[in-house]
Amino acid sequence: MTTTAAATRTPAAARRTADRTTRALLGALAVAGPLWAAVSLTQAATRDGFDLTRHPLSLLSTGALGWLQITNFVLAGILLVTGATGLRRAIPSRWAPRLVRITGLGMFAAGVLVMDPADGYPIGTPAGMPATMSWHSIGHMVAGSITFTALIAACYVLARHFKAAGARGTALAATLSGTALLLGDAWAMTGGPAGSLTLAAGAITAMCFLTATALHVRR
């Protein structure tokens, strides 16, 4: 009888363990966006010579304190990749977790591959963009493009998922978040005024939507 009771309890215990693991993984996804945004914006506000209307947040990875932003990118990437596993366990969408994982891998690569100093930052750097780009700066640009494309797609895929699930408000938020990053990136790529600011706003909006998604499905 003891063996039977233990066998009866085992599946329930396994489910509870799996649920706790999934919640922990989703917790990593929930932390990624706000942590990345807070560390980035704090540095943007306190670094001498940094101007968010002219300088992308990635430029914070240069200079004496560049290791802070490098670590911020790498940690955010790890949290996103980890959280993608939790998202795969929590929702039936096939592509949303994959796209979140690609976003995380892109963030990690963007942290490791540092862009070149440019446009007066760090202080002492000549104005304008450098005449030539290093291999790691080119790699950073490629990693950033992959990150943003995957993140935009993830928001739109999640919008479709939540709409099918009847969560129309969350679906609308997903669409608006993806569109904010799409427009912010496009404006920056075309050299529009304050393009780095619109890009940062779009990226933070989309990243924080992943936080909202993680908290939503955790419930």
Rank of each mutant, 00 (worst) to 15 (best):
A143P: 04
R89V: 00
A174F: 11
A180F: 08
L183D: 00
I152N: 03
M133Q: 11
F148I: 12
T175A: 15
S177T: 11
M133G: 01
Y156H: 12
A153Q: 04
A109M: 13
I138K: 04
V81Y: 06
G169F: 07
A131V: 08
I138N: 05
A76F: 00
A153H: 08
A90Y: 09
W187A: 06
T179K: 03
I91V: 15
G195Q: 06
G128H: 03
V142P: 03
L197Y: 01
A96D: 06
L182Y: 00
A153N: 00
G191F: 11
L79N: 03
I152D: 03
G104R: 04
H140L: 05
V81N: 07
L176W: 03
G191E: 07
C155R: 02
I123R: 15
V114R: 09
T170P: 05
P92I: 05
L99C: 14
M189C: 13
L172M: 14
G169K: 02
D119P: 04
T85Y: 11
Y121I: 10
W135H: 03
T149D: 04
S196K: 02
I78T: 15
H161T: 08
V100R: 02
V157I: 12
I78L: 15
M133C: 04
R160H: 08
F73T: 08
T82V: 14
A154V: 06
A143I: 10
A186F: 02
R101G: 11
P97Y: 10
L87K: 02
T103F: 10
I78S: 06
A127S: 11
G106C: 05
W135T: 15
F73L: 09
V157Y: 08
F148D: 01
G86M: 09
G178V: 01
G83Q: 04
T147I: 04
F108V: 13
T103C: 15
T82S: 14
G192F: 07
L158Q: 06
S93P: 02
M133Y: 12
A167I: 00
L87W: 10
L99W: 08
T170F: 12
V81S: 00
V112I: 15
T198P: 04
G166M: 06
T103W: 09
T170E: 13
T132R: 04
W187L: 09
M129G: 03
Y121Q: 05
A180Y: 01
A171F: 13
T85Q: 12
A127Y: 09
W187H: 14
R88Q: 08
S177L: 06
T132L: 07
A110M: 11
T149K: 02
L181I: 02
A127K: 10
L183N: 02
P92N: 09
N72Y: 10
G106N: 05
W135F: 08
I102E: 13
W135V: 10
A90M: 03
R101D: 08
D116G: 12
T190F: 14
G184Q: 03
G77V: 11
A188R: 06
I102G: 07
P97K: 08
A127E: 13
A180L: 09
F73K: 01
L176C: 05
A110E: 13
I146G: 01
